[in-house]
C-alpha cells in the first residue's frame, strides 16, 4: 500500500467502519482489525491457558470465528469486546478440556516453551528495544500471574489487565458480581505478596524509563 493510501486508511481506522468494510468484502479491513486486536487477544489467551500453543490456537480460532460470524455482530458492543468474548469462551473450553484430560500433568502445563525474551515480537510499537530490566520484570509479572489459581487468574486478567468492567467479567465467566469482586481482591492481594519486594524498585525504574 502506498504511503498516501496508508495515511487515508488510518484516518478511517475506526472499528465500526472496518467491520462494515469487511462485511462488504474488504479483507484488508479485516486484516486491520487483526492488527489492532491480535496482541490483546493473544495476551489474554496466554494468561488464561498458561500455554503458548493453546494461546495461539485460541487466537486463531477467535479471529476465524469472528470472521465467519460477523453477521451476528450487532454493533451495540465494541468489536474488540465481542472478539474478546469469543476468545474467552475458546480459552475456557480448552481449560475445561484440559481438566478432563488426565494425560496432561501440571508439570507439562507449566512448561512454558521459549523465553519471551528470545522471541521476535510483533510489538505494537513504543518499546521496540525493551531494556533487559524491563524484560526481566515483565517475566516476573508473567510468572506471578501464572502462579495464581485459575479462578483468580482469569478474573484478574479480564479486570485488571484487559480492563473489562466487573459486570462484563461476571457475564463472560458466568459468575455473580460479588464473586468477581472477591476473586479480584484475593488475586490482587496474592500478587501484591509476590511482588512486594519489587514495588519500590518499580517506581524508580518507571521514572527512569519515561
Amino acid at each position: 500500500m502506498a504511503e498516501a493510501e496508508l495515511a487515508v486508511a488510518q484516518q478511517v481506522d475506526d472499528e465500526a467502519e472496518l467491520v462494515e468494510r469487511t462485511r462488504a468484502g474488504d479483507r484488508d479491513a479485516f486484516n486491520r482489525l487483526v492488527e489492532r486486536n491480535a496482541q490483546k487477544v493473544f495476551r489474554m489467551a496466554r494468561h488464561m491457558t498458561r500455554n503458548d500453543q493453546d494461546a495461539e490456537d485460541v487466537l486463531q480460532e477467535a479471529f476465524l470465528k469472528a470472521y465467519r460470524r460477523l453477521d451476528q455482530f450487532q454493533g451495540d458492543a465494541k468489536f474488540s469486546t465481542w472478539l474478546t468474548r469469543i476468545a474467552v469462551n475458546e480459552a475456557l473450553m480448552r481449560l475445561r478440556k484440559r481438566r478432563n484430560d488426565k494425560t496432561v500433568s501440571l508439570d507439562e502445563e507449566l512448561t512454558l516453551g521459549d523465553s519471551p525474551m528470545q522471541r521476535d515480537v510483533a510489538d505494537d510499537g513504543d518499546d521496540p528495544e525493551e531494556s533487559y530490566e524491563r524484560a526481566e520484570m515483565r517475566e516476573i509479572l508473567e510468572d506471578a500471574i501464572d502462579a495464581l489459581a485459575e479462578g483468580y487468574r482469569t478474573v484478574f486478567v479480564l479486570r485488571d489487565v484487559e480492563g473489562f468492567s466487573t459486570e462484563e467479567t461476571a457475564e463472560m465467566l458466568d459468575l455473580s458480581i460479588s464473586a468477581v469482586k472477591s476473586r479480584l481482591l484475593r488475586a490482587r492481594l496474592q500478587l501484591r505478596d509476590k511482588l512486594r519486594r519489587r514495588l519500590k524498585g518499580h517506581g524508580r525504574e518507571k521514572e527512569n524509563h519515561v
Binding site: A38, Q39, F42, R43, R46, H47, A55, E56, L59, P116, R119, D120, V121, A122, D123, D124, D127, R138, L141, E142, I145, V161
Partner: peptide, 9 residues
C-alpha cells in the same frame, strides 16, 4: 506489555 505477540504467531 506482558506476553508480547511473537512475530511467527
Amino acid at each position: 506489555n506482558c506476553h508480547p505477540l511473537p512475530v511467527d504467531v
